[in-house]
């Protein structure tokens, strides 16, 4: 296996605050890779550096052989990275289908003027795009709701719609920012299975930010722990659970419940 994403010495500052400090990591093809850490540890900032929303002050991010730090967001998406958001950010006044079709954008080729004259190429492409969007909706379990406005969908459906939209750009690497936030245990269970299916069936590499330790420990191949922007540990789930620095980072701040529960959860036979 070779690396799909390599971060080398990535540093991002906001004024005096170092949000991501000298971060190194390497994600292999087909992994489910998790980044965890207490609130404000710089996880989402790191996501934003990968997707080009922020430009890191130092370091390199290499995706699939390209150096991508400092490229524009849309360019990076077209290279094959897409993401979801911690607080769902759908195009809320567009229908579910339209949301997914916006996601397909990087793969549509027709020139805008072709739309005015409805050239055969345009008609064919639109039909294919619509079909693909319907397929993706069905894939995430949203068959038949395509014509509802995104804002009218229930919470769980909105999360899945966001994933469908991200998948529509046919990413090689999918960044999921707390995909199970706000979900009940049953929904969370479904999401875990869904993420594993994405990897196994579509072969997409997944980079995950997650707070729910049960989720992280059960599906990650590799975990990096951030604290104050710095990597304090890296390894397989079992190593992370035993790592004293990780426990300190969590327990030392009084956020004990997270890891404690997770250990119980991991200990429990599933």
């Amino acid at each position: 296996m070779d690396a799909i994403l390599i971060a080398k010495n990535v540093t991002k500052r906001f004024g005096g605050l170092v949000a991501v400090n000298n971060l190194d990591l390497e994600i292999q093809h087909g992994q489910i890779y998790s980044v965890i850490g207490p609130n404000g540890a710089g996880k989402t900032t790191f996501f934003n550096c990968i997707t080009g929303f922020y430009t890191p002050e130092e370091g390199k991010i290499i995706f699939d052989g390209h150096e991508i730090q400092g490229l524009s967001t849309d360019h990076i998406t077209r290279l094959g990275i897409s993401r979801t958001y911690q607080n769902i950010r759908l195009f809320s006044n567009m229908t579910a289908l339209e949301n997914v079709m916006v996601g397909e954008h990087p793969h549509l080729k027709t020139f805008w003027a072709e739309a005015i004259f409805r050239t055969p190429r345009f008609v064919k492409e639109e039909a294919a795009a619509l079909k693909e969007a319907q397929r993706l909706l069905a894939f995430v379990g949203l068959k038949g709701v395509g014509d509802n406005l995104a804002r009218n969908l229930p919470y769980g459906a909105q999360r899945r719609l966001e994933v469908a939209r991200a998948l529509a750009s046919k990413p090689k690497l999918l960044l999921l920012d707390e995909p199970t936030a706000g979900m009940n245990p049953r929904e969370t269970e479904e999401m875990i299975e869904f993420i594993e299916m994405l990897r196994d069936e579509l072969g997409i590499t997944i980079l995950l930010i997650e707070h729910d330790m049960k989720v992280v420990m059960s599906i990650s191949d590799q975990i990096t722990v951030l604290d104050f922007g710095t990597k304090i540990a890296e390894g397989k789930p079992i190593d992370i659970q035993r790592n004293p620095r990780v426990i300190e980072a969590y327990l030392g701040r009084g956020a004990a419940s997270g890891l404690g529960n997770a250990r119980q959860a991991a200990a429990r036979p599933s």
């Binding site: 967001t73 958001y85 939209r165």
Partner: peptide, 13 residues
């Protein structure tokens, strides 16, 4: 609807 997300969908703003 959302410029940032639109850009993240590969749209050249």
């Amino acid at each position: 609807e959302d410029e940032d997300v639109a850009e993240a969908m590969g749209i050249n703003l």
